[in-house]
């Protein structure tokens, strides 16, 4: 009984205090206030600014979504996230049915993509709570939009081969930063980070894709145990010029044709596999110490 009473007193004392903070009305937010607000929401961001220094950009991740908060001015905010391409008609249907966000259709050298945007005008005065809700609501909109895009028609078009442009479009629409270079045989390689691992994707003429990620060498016994327990990947030990290492690999045979959806799923799944193997490798290293 006493416990319940104490809990009630704490509730009464704490909640209004939190609410009072959220009820503070602002008409503009300086960059340091924006940063404090993001930190308060436990959002880890990377900040950049326009050349003139009047616009500020905050890049961060929420689940698998790569989001940018743009502060055009202290009173004009916008959140956006890049998604895969769908026909412009489908984008229009979204815009006609949604209440808060809007989607836009774009096309560049890599192909089609769409951007989901959500703006907030502070100039009339908004509460801090409303700004937090702006971030939360966008999270919900992202998930809804992702579900809405679902398995779009373009995801299911079978491609005779996978072009570098198609891969670049997939990276872009998954919010994956990559660098591209050609190997000595003229095939392109894409380096990127997924699930905290550095991954390289090789495109062998659009007919065979391969990804690998390297780790500190583990024993062949543990390599075999890992291969026995997993699907879709292969762990191999290699002797490099100066160093021995363990590699996690996966190949996608595109000879019979693949869809964008298959390639996207293959890349993202490998991110999960890389994280899983990293944990396995870490546990082995810990056990050895």
């Amino acid at each position: 009984m006493l416990r319940n009473f104490i809990a009630f007193v704490v509730f009464v004392a704490v909640i209004p205090a939190a609410s009072a903070q959220d009820e503070k009305v602002v008409r503009n937010l300086a960059p340091d206030a924006v940063e404090a607000l993001l930190k308060d929401q436990k959002i880890e961001f990377v900040k950049s600014s326009s050349k003139k220094g009047d616009e500020h950009y905050y890049d961060f991740k929420r689940d698998a979504y790569k989001i940018r908060l743009t502060c055009f001015s202290p009173s004009e905010f916008m959140l956006d996230c890049v998604f895969r391409g769908v026909p412009i008609e489908k984008v229009n249907v979204w815009n006609a049915s949604t209440r808060f966000s809007r989607a836009s259709y774009h096309k560049d050298m890599s192909g089609e993509f769409t951007i989901l945007e959500y703006g907030l005008d502070l100039s009339g005065g908004v509460t801090t709570g409303a700004i937090k809700q702006f971030l939360v609501r966008f999270d919900e909109e992202l998930k809804k939009y992702d579900r809405y895009l679902g398995n779009s028609a373009s995801d299911d078009v079978v491609l005779a081969q996978v072009s570098d442009e198609k891969l670049e479009n997939i990276f872009k629409t998954q919010g994956i930063n990559y660098s591209k270079k050609a190997n000595k045989d003229g095939f392109n390689m894409f380096d990127f980070e997924l699930s905290g691992q550095s991954i390289r994707l090789y495109n062998f003429g659009g007919k065979d894709l391969m990804m690998d990620t390297h780790f500190k060498k583990i024993s062949l016994e543990h390599v075999n145990i890992y291969n026995l327990s997993r699907k879709f990947v292969r762990v191999v030990n290699y002797k490099g010029k100066d160093v021995e290492y363990t590699s996690l690999e996966a190949n996608l045979d595109c000879e019979a044709g693949v869809t964008e959806g298959m390639v996207r799923h293959w890349i993202l799944s490998f991110g999960d596999d890389a994280r899983h193997f990293a944990d396995y490798s870490k546990k082995l290293q810990m056990a050895q110490k």
Binding site: K231, F232, A256, T259, V263, H265, S269
Partner: peptide
Amino acid sequence: AQLDCTGGVTEAAIRQFVNR
């Protein structure tokens, strides 16, 4: 060898998987 079908699969891809 394993073929993950959750991202989509065609009969041709299954045929290729078996032949490969």
